[in-house]
Design a protein around this nucleic acid. Structure first.
Lengths: 249, 249
DNA sequence: AACGCATGTTTCGTATCCAATTTGAGCCAA
DNA sequence: TTGGCTCAAATTGGATACGAAACATGCGTT
């Protein structure tokens, strides 16, 4: 079985006990954000979180600092913390980065894959095609791709890729429910082609297919630009720069 | 002008006043590590750091947590913090990642470059060729590359690239002083070729040259593997256990 | 020599207090 | 009404003190 990571299915299994309060809080907040329970742009107060997890403010502060490094939270000094609001330009930037990184991870992974791993990938792709629920679809999509990189043995690379999947989670959710399972046949076709190339151990072919898969998604995402919630509001950095105001929920 | 981000030039300018004690401490520790003052593998105690910066332990704890996310320190629960010891495999992994990312940054940057920017790059390359001091060489090399990406307008990408330059700083230093300025003509030749391609606005050419530049360095690095300080002492992870994967905690 | 236990040190978390900054409301003036 | 100003409330950032848990070490016994 071997689940992918402890940060992977944050809500599924509750097997991530680090015995460190800070880690528990960090993963808890991360799960809340990824699940959409704390929507982007919403303010998150330290005391509120501390009360929710029944801890003091210190582990919350540490957790928020860590999540800021992960790009999920934005801190403004002496003011508060907000769930990061990723604008479309940033999202497209991330897709361009993924376009370079994930084919590398896949190419490095394929030579190390067992046949069982490939069977798992095929099963995940089929389940995804059969899924009707948006959340299930998102989860399976994520599992499919991350599982296809798991044998690369490149820890740093995998961590980065997972980070990108996290920060663009909201976009994928909005996009998926927007297109409403009608254009999913494209994704399914691409996934099946990738699995087929992997089974043939056609490393370059699989990498190219993956590149196009990500690239197509990016272009499609850019096309629906105006449909996305992009109310000005430039996301702010710690340094503040010129204050903007208007955060709110 | 236009610093890249808060993680930008930790040692170059001493203009990192965030009025936040945590930020000051974070950048201070980062500078100490990058300068080699705190060597990899050395233990760093909270109280010692707190005393050195004349602050309490709280900002130190937050700073260490942040630097851990940046991959510069390693925390072991209830035990302490160590300066991250990057083994050769990780270093090579990073070079493979850079091989994908930095050509993208360069390609995106070239169309936005002013002629003045290109002049600056040429000047940096020349200064580097004329440099005799290792530290100066390292600094100019870093400035050259980062300046060539600065016009890409991709904040996240730049932050990642800079992070990689930080975590492999020790290797570059060791490698540079090891080869002792005798093989530097290769680097200089590559840099001049890159600048020339940029001036011709030959985006693809420049990107390819950069790819090879990084790739050659990686191969050379791998060749000198046994020469590097890799004294057993496996760097330990928080969870300690096997199979951690991702998140580089 | 190997094992187990006791001790000391450091971190991690809590609780409380205080300073600094932001922010929002209210008020006044043009 | 709109713009700008002052002031007060709320929240964060940090310090200090204290307790508990975990790790590391050394000693003594078998």
């Amino acid at each position: 079985m071997e689940t992918i990571d402890r940060t992977a299915s944050a809500e599924a299994t509750s097997a991530h006990e680090s015995s460190l309060v800070t880690d528990r809080v960090t993963e808890g907040i991360r799960a809340l954000i990824l699940a959409g329970e704390l929507p982007p742009g919403s303010r998150i107060g330290q005391e509120e979180l501390a009360a929710r997890f029944s801890v003091s403010r210190i582990p919350v502060r540490v957790a928020l600092g860590r999540l800021e490094s992960d790009g999920l939270v934005v801190l403004k000094p002496s003011s508060g913390a907000w769930v990061a609001r990723v604008d479309l330009a940033e999202c497209l930037e991330i897709y361009m980065i993924r376009e370079r990184l994930e084919p590398l991870a896949l190419a490095q992974s394929i030579p190390n894959m067992t046949d069982e791993r490939i069977d798992l990938l095929e099963r995940l792709a089929d389940d995804m095609a059969a899924s009707t629920d948006t959340e299930t679809f998102l989860k399976l999509d994520r599992m499919f791709h991350l599982a296809s990189y798991a044998d690369a043995g490149m820890k740093q690379l995998l961590a980065m890729i997972e980070r990108f999947w996290n920060t663009t989670q909201h976009y994928r959710r909005a996009f998926t429910s927007l297109l409403g399972h009608e254009r999913n046949w494209i994704i399914h076709a691409e996934h099946r082609l990738i699995v087929d190339a992997i089974r043939r151990r056609d490393t370059e072919g699989a990498a190219h297919l993956l590149t196009e898969h990500i690239r197509r998604t990016r272009c499609e995402l850019a096309q629906y630009a105006d449909l996305f919630p992009n109310p000005g509001s430039p996301r702010k950095n710690r340094k503040g720069g010129l204050s903007d105001s208007s955060n709110a929920r």
